[in-house]
């Protein structure tokens, strides 16, 4: 089973809100000093699941990222986890690209790679929180898209049985390949890179493709980011007094009762 996993390098989502800084144009979030960018969490889940499918069915796992040069670090991490090959899409024209543009570029790169049975993406990127790029890839490649996936219950070389989250539960779906999945965090616990994997990844060559290598034209974006603003919270909870935890529990009940909330 040949699988392509799209991975995005993002600002660490665990930076406390009070440390979040923007660049001068207020269009990008900057990592505070010393906090390295990370591989988007859901993409790491997607890669882990792809590696497990390869362990069962054989084939190749190729990771694909669109980003600046720093994204090579995340691609190397993916290689160290066990991916067979990595490709970087990097071109200044994609600096503030919208979801459609990113999705179409990734789709064109997938076409260029050629052979695949399955495309795996994260359900969303933790910097944009957009949850769109995967669907633009699917539409461009005319693949069915299924997301968010919490489990691959069965896998055969030509079809998968997956659990897709819906309000109040999940659906069990049979998906004929080729297809595209948007992966959610319930699916697995991603492995850590091995020492040996890290050494091999260090030596690996990662081709860099530009817009002209993909044979597509640059489209006028439909969605344009105007600016970002940091949201600060200023409220502070009123703390309930009491001589013990149990006392505070009782006082909380009384307080909520007085407020008419219980």
């Amino acid at each position: 089973m040949d699988i392509i996993v799209t991975i995005k390098e993002v600002t660490d989502p665990n930076i406390p809100p009070s440390y979040v800084k923007l660049d001068a144009q207020a269009k990008r979030i900057e990592s505070p000093f010393g906090v390295a960018p990370v591989l988007n969490g859901y993409d790491e889940n997607a890669l882990e699941e792809a590696l497990r499918l390869r362990e069962r069915h054989g084939g190749r796992v190729t990771v694909l990222s669109l980003g600046d040069d720093s994204s090579r670090k995340s691609l190397k991490r993916a290689l160290a986890m066990g991916a067979d090959a990595a490709i970087l899409l990097s071109d200044p024209v994609w600096m503030y690209a919208d979801s459609a543009t990113v999705g179409r570029a990734l789709a064109a790169a997938i076409r260029k790679i050629g052979k695949f049975d399955l495309v795996m993406c994260g359900r969303q990127a933790s910097d944009t929180d957009a949850g769109q790029v995967l669907y633009w890839i699917a539409e461009t490649l005319k693949l069915p898209a299924v997301s968010p996936i919490a489990k691959i219950a069965e896998s055969e070389p030509t079809n998968l049985t997956v659990h897709r989250l819906i309000d109040g539960g999940h659906q069990r779906l049979r998906v004929q390949l080729p297809a595209l999945l948007g992966v959610s965090s319930e699916i697995n616990e991603p492995r850590h890179p091995t020492m040996r994997g890290t050494m091999n990844a260090g030596r690996a060559l990662i081709p860099g493709w530009k817009l002209r290598d993909l044979g597509i034209a640059q489209a006028v974006p439909k969605v344009e980011l105007r600016r970002l603003t940091v949201q600060t919270r200023t409220t502070k909870a009123q703390l309930i007094d009491g001589s013990s935890d149990a006392d505070r529990g009782i006082a909380l009940a009384d307080k909520l009762h007085d407020m008419g909330l219980v």
Binding site: A237, D245, R248
Partner: peptide, 18 residues
């Protein structure tokens, strides 16, 4: 910093009494 009311404590003590 988001809550209106807070109890600092071990929930295993707080909740049953609550």
């Amino acid at each position: 910093a988001r809550a209106d009311l807070g109890v600092v404590g071990d929930y295993k003590e707080v909740l049953p009494a609550f």
